[in-house]
Design a protein around this nucleic acid. Structure first.
Length: 414
RNA sequence: GUGGCUGUAGCUCAGGGGUUAGAGCACUAGGUUGUGGCCCUAGGGGCCGUGGGUUCAAUUCCCAUCAGCCACCCCA
């Protein structure tokens, strides 16, 4: 018999994990509705050009991480590497209301080398809010993200915020930065030199190399080079966060890897996963993307959270105690299996989670199984019970048992 | 994409160039003629990741490959 295995970097999410996923999705949906967001579902496949235009030609995602292929007509197709470009495309294509609050959940694909906290297929829950240019919206979005995580019992994270400026001041800042780096090239690692060459000088700021970090310590900060409107926006954003009671850390060195961000950017970082992949949620404002993808000039802000990473954090904190106990395990002799079968059905019709073994097994085995399934009660139907038209009900925790009947059991669970 | 470590039962792992490869846990059955958890006994289950090479002989040594983990890179 041939054996088939998962493709590299993919995983099966089995019941031991999906219980947690159900919780994450349910709680996310509740919080999102509170903030007036609606679900949007877009295709997993899109034309490749959407992401080249949307995410940016120079980004790593586009340069080396896209799962792209040609379909039977030779069209360039890609398994979406992220959600924002798709949602923006759908927003434009469906002429949605200018002000729209949308959320999505689904798999994303990136052809990367897998390691802990980083798969080739992974799930994201994300939100995108269109039509509101104010910093209040930025702060609301951060607050929403914080609420979502706290609802899940996650408190061990740090919120880092920054502004990357707009298309007016960003290029000017990069020039200032280049002037600073130029005489210090000898101090930088090879990767950073490459970053400068391919026009991604800002990425030097978040290099983890010791020497680079030291060098960059005294580098000019973006926040000090924002144009007037961006600076005002940023200050008001920080103030709005305080009004919302959000605790944050200003980190002028966070740089998002996707090219579309303008002004506000933020990251939620945890130290609970025990891996280097410690960003569980990240996002920011992107005021030019809708226009760049062919829509009307529309401001927008959003974020995306990694479902697997969130699940990891929850598990690291002991996980959830989910109630998956069976209410009643029905136990019987082989000649009364049909009677037991009928009882299980009746109980279920009354909303009671009842199970039994259809196979002929000894009482001992059936009790062992009832125990393994963590049944609250065992209901025994044997010869005497059939004769008396009763059911022996045993409390599996206390060990007490008493004779009752079908209706008695149903009443017990009302 | 680069570098390092690892790959033996469902899980955690031991072992070792030569007959039938082990342990604990889990699983199944039994230890009362109708009663679980603890305990005891028995049992099932392994192409020793895959392919090739060296050898009289490979699961053990060598190479390749695949996969996982870690670091870099990057990101959710």
């Amino acid at each position: 018999m041939p054996q088939y295995n998962r493709l590299r970097g993919t995983k099966d999410v089995i019941p031991a994990q999906t219980q947690l996923w159900e919780q994450i999705i349910m709680k996310a949906a509740r919080t999102l509705k509170l903030y007036d967001y609606s679900l949007i579902v877009t295709p997993v496949i899109e034309e490749t050009a959407l992401f080249i235009r949307g995410v940016g030609e120079g980004s790593d995602i586009v340069m080396k991480e896209m799962y792209n292929f040609q379909d039977k007509k030779g069209r360039e197709i890609v398994l979406r590497p992220e959600g924002t470009a798709s949602v923006v495309r759908a927003y434009i294509e469906n002429s949605l209301p200018v002000k729209s609050n949308l959320y999505y959940i689904g798999p994303m694909f990136r052809y990367e080398k897998p390691q802990k906290g980083r798969d080739r297929e992974f799930y994201q829950i994300g939100v995108e809010s269109f039509g509101d240019p104010t910093p209040y919206k930025d702060a609301e979005t951060v607050k929403l993200a914080e609420t979502f995580l706290k609802e899940l019992g996650i408190n061990a994270f740090e919120i880092q915020v920054n502004s990357t400026g707009c298309k007016e001041c960003k290029p000017k800042y990069i020039e200032v930065l280049l002037n600073f780096l130029e005489p210090r090239k000898a101090m930088l690692c090879e990767d950073c030199l490459k970053k400068i060459e391919r026009g991604a000088a800002i990425r030097v700021l978040d290099c983890k190399n010791e020497k680079c970090r030291e060098t960059v310590m005294s580098a000019p900060l973006v926040t000090a080079h924002l144009c007037e409107p961006c600076d005002t926006h940023h200050k008001l954003f920080l103030e709005a966060l305080k009004i919302n009671g959000v605790k944050f850390i200003e980190n002028p060195r966070i740089v998002r890897g996707l090219d579309y961000y303008t002004k506000t950017v933020f990251e939620f970082i945890t130290d609970k996963i025990g891996a280097q992949q410690n960003t569980i949620l990240a996002g920011g404002r992107y005021d030019n993307l809708v226009w760049e993808l062919g829509g009307k000039k529309t401001p927008a802000v959003g974020f995306a959270a990694g479902v697997e990473r969130i699940a990891e954090v929850i598990n690291a904190g002991g996980g959830f105690t989910t109630e998956d106990k069976v209410d009643i395990f029905v136990i019987t002799d082989k000649q009364y299996i049909k009677n037991a079968y009928a009882l299980v059905n009746t109980l279920r019709e009354s909303g009671i989670k009842a199970v039994m073994s259809y196979e002929e097994k000894s009482f001992k085995s059936q009790f062992r199984e009832a125990d393994a399934r963590k049944a609250k009660y065992a209901a025994i139907i044997g010869e005497t019970e059939i004769q008396n038209k009763t059911v022996m009900l045993k409390n599996m925790e206390t060990g007490e048992q008493k004779e009752t009947n079908e209706q008695g059991i149903i009443n017990l669970f009302k």
